[in-house]
């Protein structure tokens, strides 16, 4: 990871909120009850990349699912307010959405790219069917040819050969599957994309390609991204702001620069120093915990 962050990271961010979450608490109704997310508040600005970092089990994924109303039993959102600020100026109370309203909201305003596209694609229908059905449901006016054209356009956007539209999930490599997932997520030109560890299961080289694709698309379409990962150095590279989560709470939030240079919370500092660097003397990390990242 590079030692220096340039100020280019802040291009495209307008400090205008697109999603406001206040006092969100989510618990798992098991025995004993597990409080996965404790009174979390955050604001996502239009077009920005917000990184959500933390180790496994800290609640970042649960929070993301909660934002999109995708929580599955035994998870239950016990309190909180989530407001989506549409481009048109209208404010949507996400928690109050129901039935058809919720369905229309999903994917159109907020879409998701899940962890490990291994299993996120339906194995028994073709890629074409899965790209088309989003369009069929949300844009009922589109003709079959229009849907096909759009699907081809989406695949080209993410760098997948459009002829693969006939393929099935098992015929694609991991990287390609993830790109298809991203193409699907872009289909309705959402205003927010939540990405949950989208590259964790991929090779490092492929990972870089995907990240670059995401950055490029974000520049082109200006959607906000909530990027969830445990890979803090990557977030430092690409995020505008970063929130660090520990045991269900946000312990630190700031711009990437601030976190990199001047992390306040001891956990953040610990996270930062846990990654060996490519530069620096060999053995430094193991012996002394030295890395070129980390607060001065």
């Amino acid at each position: 990871m590079s030692a220096e962050l340039t100020s280019d990271q802040t291009v495209g961010v307008t400090p205008e909120p697109v999603l406001t979450a206040r006092n969100v608490s989510i618990e798992y109704e098991v025995d004993p009850v597990v409080k996965a997310v404790k009174d979390v508040s955050l604001t996502l600005n239009r077009g920005e990349i917000l990184g959500l970092a933390g180790e496994s089990g800290c609640g970042k994924t649960t929070l993301a699912y909660g934002l999109n109303r995708l929580l599955k039993a035994p998870a239950l959102m016990t309190s909180g307010e989530i407001v989506f600020h549409d481009r048109s100026g209208e404010d949507v109370d996400v928690r109050a959405l129901d039935g058809d309203g919720l369905r229309a909201f999903r994917w159109d305003k907020i879409s998701m790219v899940f962890q490990g596209a291994m299993n996120s694609l339906n194995p028994v229908i073709s890629i074409r069917a899965q790209l088309h059905d989003v369009l069929t449901t949300h844009r009922p006016g589109m003709s079959k040819d229009e849907k096909e054209a759009r699907s081809v356009e989406l695949l080209t956007l993410v760098g997948v050969d459009p002829s693969r539209i006939n393929s099935y999930a098992h015929e694609l490599s991991g990287g390609m599957r993830q790109r298809v997932m991203i193409a699907m997520a872009l289909a309705l030109e959402p205003q927010i994309m939540i990405m949950d560890e989208p590259t964790t299961a991929l090779d490092v080289v492929v990972q870089r390609g995907i990240i670059r694709e995401i950055m490029r698309l974000r520049e082109q379409f200006n959607f906000a991204v909530v990027f969830i990962t445990h890979d803090l150095p990557m977030l430092l590279e690409i995020s505008d702001r970063i929130a660090v989560m520990l045991q269900g709470e946000i312990v630190e939030m700031g711009t990437a620069q601030e976190i990199y240079r001047n992390a306040q919370h001891p956990y953040t500092r610990k996270l930062l120093s846990s990654f060996p660097s490519l530069t620096g003397t060999r053995g430094d990390f193991v012996r002394r915990g030295d890395s070129t990242e980390g607060a001065a």
Binding site: E29, V30, K72, A73, P74, A75, L76, T78
Partner: peptide, 16 residues
Amino acid sequence: IAPAAQRNVRKARRER
């Protein structure tokens, strides 16, 4: 687990 989980959530909601 799945059916039990559903029931637990409904119960918690009712209690709340």
